[in-house]
Design a protein around this nucleic acid. Structure first.
Lengths: 342, 342
DNA sequence: ATTAGCACTCAACAACAAAGAGTGCTAATA
DNA sequence: TATTAGCACTCTTTGTTGTTGAGTGCTAAT
């Protein structure tokens, strides 16, 4: 038994219908709504075959069928027609994304919000981990004679600004020089490497400021350990209540609880993302908590290194077509911006 | 008719019981659980009086009574015994808050998390609005010859770091000098005043850098307008699902939707806060969305100006006693830290 | 190969009864 | 005079029992 033309048509109809209605689809519904030119009985036979092949499931004997993850996968890969994005939507995206030069971080946050607004799903934006990225610039800015702000700018555009307290104080002019020296020395290294580099590579130029550096660097490393290593922005969390599959309070709770666990989401997104836009369906997701969700993730790169992820999460019964078209448009514009401006 | 000793005792018993069980309290329950030495019939008579006085309500004829907002107010002001905080909890707070020097912002965020963990309610932390606070230090850090980061440190300890793109580029050395001059000139002003100051007060020292300043400042003002004027940290949002009053999906949804509206929460917190710790009960809250919630808010000040708010939100049937004791301890330690370190 | 016909399954819904918690009132009591 | 036992009444909650209807799988006819 194999997937002939008619089976595909029927499967497509069932998936479309289920995405739209969230109700198990029966044979009669199919013949009424989709003009396939065969009787319900024929559809029933085909449905039984599709179930045997693993594309459909029956919640209980006397209910219609619902698509399996395998069916959604087929749908996303080959069956689905991608909507052309509406003019209004494209303009809205343009208006709201293009004005965001500034920090990449903010660009992601905005995009996430726009995506949530346009799709009515929950969206996430993730920045890369700080540890892996290269230092572009390090600047120490004194606030008073005991505290300073370390401005850390990475090649991925992330800026951090930990406040350091230096016991024993310092001279502001010296800090300026130290800042310059360290900057020359460390720019281009990954943050991970810096600690290593510092202990090995004590040349005379640095030696001159040994005293102050020995007090500043440990503070800096300690703070870098503590610091939030990545940022995660969440939008439209309550959109989940729009979907009948989450009208059960326990389902809703467990979904929202998942959204509170940043580490879990990070690994979920990072492991699902790849080149361009990737769809991860139900059981394909790495974590148990997302087994009945689908994730659509766009990865953004600059010079080959990922600089951010934009992700949308919802029930496996997701309007893939619309999501992919909106997200595609947003990705396109972000990538354009990255190319032109960074 | 007035509130005699016995009425107060009964009211207290009802409130305690309702806080604990979330079920309307009947006359028989009171006599069984609280040893008041009178029969259910007597309690019933007193309850009828308390209802007439506005302290109790009946969901329906054949149910027990539940406390009104007025009753909770009385409870919080005079009836409640404040628990002494447990040793373990105090130590936990100490361990988790004291290690947070660094930015005030982070201190608030941490405190909010600790408070949520110890109470199992939803907590919020709010920073003051940027516009009203005074500039302590402004530093321009060049990234390359077209972009720079403006480090803005205010007297309330908030640090912002907008990225500015300066059309036409600049010389890095000049930026350093500009930065110094601006810093001398503007430190101590509120951000609101700066724009005004800049246009009026063009003395020779600044005039020298007129060209570059004229290109930098408009960018800075534009960014300050756009920038998130305050930060709001949220913890334990899903704790709401622990309470039976939110097992209705619509209630839960509307609560969580409220939590997504940062502006609304800001005004809610800012308007409920005052000196020290303030409890705002149900209808006392300014916004419609929080009419069946209570808010406990602690305001933190430095030299008379508020530098942050820590807030806890939950059903009016809240364990005020525990919340106030935990929050009191956290406030105490934050205030200590503020006094010692800032 | 397709389909009409039919017996069968099962969730969803409505109607109804019974249980139980709680009240207010009245009359008896300390 | 304040308290309380007793009782009729109210109203929600819970369980039971049909009934309906959507949908299926199988068989036999086309």
């Amino acid at each position: 038994m194999e997937l002939n033309e008619r089976k595909l048509k029927i499967l497509q109809a069932i998936i479309k219908d289920y995405i739209y209605t969230a109700e198990p689809v029966g044979s009669r519904t199919i013949t009424k709504r989709y003009n396939l030119g065969v009787s319900p009985a024929t559809i029933r036979n085909e449905m039984a075959d599709l179930e045997e092949l693993g594309y459909l499931m029956q919640p209980h004997t006397s209910a219609g069928r619902i698509p399996s993850d395998k069916a959604y996968r087929l749908y996303v890969d080959t069956l689905m027609e991608i909507k052309k994005i509406a003019e209004v939507q494209r303009d809205y995206i343009k208006a709201n994304i293009l004005r965001q030069f500034g920090e990449l971080e903010q660009l992601l946050q905005y995009s996430s919000r726009v995506l949530a607004e346009l799709t009515n799903y929950t969206t996430l934006a993730l920045t890369p981990q700080l540890k892996g990225s290269r230092l572009k610039q390090l600047q120490l800015v004194p606030i008073n004679n005991e505290n300073l702000v370390a401005i850390i700018i990475t090649d991925t555009g992330v800026v951090k600004k930990p406040l350091l307290r230096i016991k024993g104080g310092f001279d502001e002019e010296v800090i300026y020089n130290v800042s310059k020296v360290l900057n020359d020395k460390l720019a281009g290294s990954t943050l991970k490497d810096i600690e290593h580099k510092m202990s090995n590579d004590m040349d005379k130029e640095i030696f001159q400021f040994n005293n102050i550096i020995n007090r500043v660097m440990p503070e800096l490393f300690k703070t870098l350990e503590d610091i939030n290593d990545f940022d995660l922005f969440l939008n439209g969390a309550t959109n989940i209540f729009n979907f009948p599959e989450y009208s059960d309070i326990f389902k809703a709770k467990s979904f929202l609880t998942m959204l509170e666990e940043k580490q879990l989401l990070r690994s979920l997104i990072a492991s699902s993302g790849g080149e361009g836009m990737v769809v991860s369906i139900g059981s394909e997701n790495t974590c148990q908590e997302a087994k009945d969700c689908s994730l659509v993730t766009a990865t953004f790169k600059l010079n080959g290194a990922p600089v951010g992820w934009l992700s949308l999460i919802g029930p496996t019964r997701m309007d893939y077509s619309n999501v992919i078209s909106v997200m595609g448009q947003i990705s396109k514009q972000i990538n354009q911006l990255l190319k032109d401006e960074y």
